[in-house]
Design a protein around this nucleic acid. Structure first.
Lengths: 195, 195
DNA sequence: CGAGCGCTTGATTGAGTTCAAAAATCGTGG
DNA sequence: CCACGATTTTTGAACTCAATCAAGCGCTCG
């Protein structure tokens, strides 16, 4: 079994007690791929047919607004899954782009994989509901920050939540995630050093 | 059966084919209450033990930030459910306040109601997953607007999505929902008339 | 009928953007 | 391994959108 798939299997087994042969059966829905920095995995307008598990490397999802500006929605380092849940679930065109920030080993997981796994394994359904709630909590927190916190507060929140990503992600992408310009983030950081 | 509970039963039956006696059994988890304008149903810091179904009237959920400013998260008119999903699911203290914008008829739905209903009725589980995805889609859209749209664009989006609420909600609350001040919203509106 | 609340309007301020350019860092081919 | 071009980060100055502060108007409801 390929390394990336193996890592993914371990990830799944944390939440769903599926045996070797059961996993074997579902493996037809999995594809391991190496992607290079900058490579697109999902383009806005497409329906999101699969999720992406990062075995090694780093992905990002982002939107592009009317003025052509990127807004990063999520980073996805090792051990994370990324996809456009809404697009997958409702079978609608996605608004998201997903691409690689680093050369990465990715498992492409067809949507059917999760459907089948849910049927076979009720623990996984619970896990799925759990992760939907986590997702809501995370986005809701982001809304709160965008509504009520300054650029500096949002940056401090980011380094509190994702300290390990700080050195891997270029600053202009962090700025994009925070909803500010790279120049503003640079000034925020300068101000923080001063203190 | 009280009017409000009856309306709620119809609401549930749209998604879960539950019979009269089944509903009867679960009705111990329901309480119908009349609340007056301004009355608090949930306070930040409390664990959210129930959801609130609006049979008649209008609720709102909101947070209060460090500077003491309110930020409205959601409006809940007739036929809507509101709660702090994260708080209910993870059994954590809520960040939300929920109160009544109008005198309202509300059904208090104990969290156990949904647990039981899910067990008895698999259609309802599907409905629940569906509504979690809708929720994610809605919040995600809000993040996109906060990241990439001007005050005017956000207001236009609001009146497109909730035209029927416009006359029922005071302007300063709409401003709070949009993440701007009442003064700014007043100016945005003036500008839109001019066009 | 008056007190309070919500909305508007004006003047001023301020956080963050934009534009421009220099400085630092990265990465890649010779 | 170094050099050079590209990308990223920093810095500066002007600007802009929305916030703040302040005042006045109009409604309603007690």
């Amino acid at each position: 079994m390929e390394e990336a798939i193996f890592i993914f299997k371990n990830y799944i087994q944390q939440s769903a007690p599926i045996d070797e042969s059961g996993f074997e059966q579902l493996s037809k829905y999995l594809k391991s791929k190496k992607v290079v920095k900058g490579q697109l995995l999902l383009r806005a307008g497409e329906v999101c047919k699969s999720s992406f598990f990062t075995a090694k490397g780093l992905l990002r999802s982002y939107t592009i607004d009317k003025q052509g500006k990127e807004h990063i929605i999520q980073f996805s380092p090792e051990g994370w899954l990324v996809a456009d849940r809404s697009s997958s679930f409702f079978n609608e065109p996605s608004f998201l782009y997903i691409d690689a920030i680093e050369d990465s080993d990715i498992v492409y997981i067809d949507n059917l994989f999760f459907d089948e796994l849910s049927k076979q394994c009720s623990d996984f359904s619970l896990f799925n509901i759990n992760s939907l709630h986590h997702h809501i909590k995370q986005i809701q927190n982001r809304v709160n920050l965008l509504l009520g916190a300054s650029a500096e507060e949002r940056y401090l929140d980011f380094i509190r939540l994702y300290p390990e990503l700080l050195m891997r992600i270029p600053q202009w992408m962090i700025a994009s995630y925070l909803g500010i310009t790279p120049e503003s983030l640079s000034r925020v950081r300068k101000e923080l050093y001063r203190k």
